[in-house]
Simulated assay, not measured.
Amino acid sequence: MLTKYQEARHEVRSTVLAVVKRLAKANEEALKALEGSDENQLEEVRKTIKNITKETEKIDNDIVLIFARYTPEAKDLREMVSYLKITSEFNRIRSNINNYLKNMQSMLSEEDVNIIQFIKESLSINRCTINAFDKTIEMFETFDDNDKIKQLAIEIDVEYAKTDDIYALLEKGVVQKMGEAGGQAEEYFNLLKYIRKNLKIIDRLDSIAQRTIFARIGGKL
């Protein structure tokens, strides 16, 4: 039978996993909406992550209560401290997703066929991010397997590296179009800016992977 302390620890980890899954689902639904150029659906996706901050605040408060009520062992203390860092990353991811989708709504409303085509081409980044989310979820689900979580962290880093290559190719095409766009050059510049914001999501996931390894194995936070 689990002690109250163990139950509290497990509850925190379960809540962390639930938040990751919500963010991952939002990212998947956003991809579908962007594939269909559906502005209204993008708005619906934004609504699904509106209360993420309340959930991360609960996680932080629960961890503080664990510190106050119990005396965590060193490895458990390391895990709880890591989650305090991870909840900050969750809040940033929520903000990144929300801002990216809001900006994509404005881009789609332009009804510029070239911009829409560039958005479609950029979705390879979103697919890499979805893969990284899946691997992040698996890290928490296989938390007790040191070798597994280290391998998953490597795979997340590979997905992250792919997005740099995708963006470099996309940027080349957009910059070329900017030179031909005349008065519309600003719209293309903004599109690149918004896509760079999208890249921050997988950057945060890469950071979460490293913090999860610290939670389990130790090292540098």
Rank of each mutant, 00 (worst) to 15 (best):
S207R: 10
I154H: 11
A161D: 12
T48S: 14
N99Q: 11
V175Y: 08
S82Y: 05
E28Q: 14
V19N: 02
R94E: 00
R92M: 07
E55W: 02
K172N: 07
V12F: 05
I208R: 05
R204A: 12
Q210Y: 07
A8I: 05
M139W: 15
L65K: 12
A30Q: 01
L170I: 03
A161E: 14
T142Q: 06
T129L: 04
V20Y: 04
L199S: 04
T129F: 01
S106N: 14
V175I: 15
Y5V: 02
T142I: 06
I195N: 02
Y160P: 08
L221Y: 10
K162A: 04
Q41F: 08
E89G: 11
L42Q: 05
K135Q: 14
G218S: 09
K47L: 06
R204D: 13
S124T: 06
E11S: 12
K75T: 11
V175W: 10
N40I: 06
A185F: 14
L205R: 04
G173T: 13
Q184I: 05
Y83E: 04
K50A: 00
D147N: 12
N126S: 10
K58H: 03
F90D: 10
I156K: 06
Q151D: 14
K85M: 12
D134K: 15
K75H: 10
A132F: 00
N126Y: 02
L101R: 03
L101T: 07
E138F: 08
I93E: 02
I125S: 00
R94H: 01
L123K: 03
K135N: 12
L199P: 03
V12R: 03
A30E: 01
V158M: 15
R9C: 12
L34W: 03
E43Q: 10
E111P: 02
M80A: 05
N27G: 01
Q117M: 13
L191P: 06
D165W: 03
I52Q: 03
D134G: 15
I201D: 00
Q176L: 10
L108N: 02
Q41C: 11
S37I: 04
Q184C: 07
K135F: 09
L123T: 05
T87G: 05
F90C: 06
N61G: 11
L77H: 04
I125M: 01
K148C: 08
A26V: 00
R69M: 15
